[in-house]
């Protein structure tokens, strides 16, 4: 099986039952994508598959064949400068333990990609796809609002 992850192409030989989240973490060493519930509910494992958000715990390895994947490791720029959305999460204390953060970032990035100026309610609705046990969500919503077009951290 072949796939592209964050711009790098990979060839892998894995068992079909291996979940995409485990391919990323264990075969490719990209441990930014987190496995939480492993049944689609928590959103920690969210990745972008051909540009669309999906649960990587509900995909089998062969379903990645020929596809383009983007994970949290693909957000930082050259020289490891954090993506504006990541900087905004930092500035607004949008994370505590950080377990939910990769999924939150990719969900927010997808939202800003097709709705660069969301209302607070739209941000809340999009982020309802992801569970956070630490922050109480307010700071995460603040971080995303501040990254929408015109905010301090322009992601567009």
């Amino acid at each position: 099986m072949r796939c592209t992850v964050n711009g790098t192409s990979h060839r892998l030989d894995v068992e079909p039952r291996r979940l995409a989240v485990d391919v990323l973490r264990e075969n490719l060493g990209l441990t930014g994508t987190h496995a939480g519930c492993e049944h689609g509910v928590c959103g920690a494992c969210t990745i972008l598959l051909d540009g669309e958000p999906v649960r990587s715990c509900l995909l089998f390895a062969p379903q990645l064949d020929g596809r383009d994947v983007r994970t949290v490791e693909g957000l930082a720029g050259p020289g490891d400068e954090l993506h504006p959305l990541q900087q905004s999460f930092g500035a607004h204390h949008g994370l505590q333990c950080g377990f939910c953060t990769p999924g939150m970032l990719l969900t927010a990035l997808d939202l800003l990609g097709h709705n660069p100026t969301p209302t607070r309610d739209e941000v809340r609705e999009a982020l309802s796809a992801n569970l956070c046990r630490c922050t109480g969500y307010q700071q995460i919503v603040d971080a995303v609002m501040d990254s929408s077009r015109g905010g301090a951290f322009d992601c567009t």
């Binding site: 689609g40 959103g43 969210t46 598959l49 669309e52 958000p53 999906v54 649960r55 509900l58 969900t107 997808d110 999009a126 309802s128 796809a129």
Partner: peptide, 9 residues
């Protein structure tokens, strides 16, 4: 139905 990450699949 669910969330966008569910609806895309």
């Amino acid at each position: 139905i669910g969330h966008r990450a569910i609806r895309t699949r």
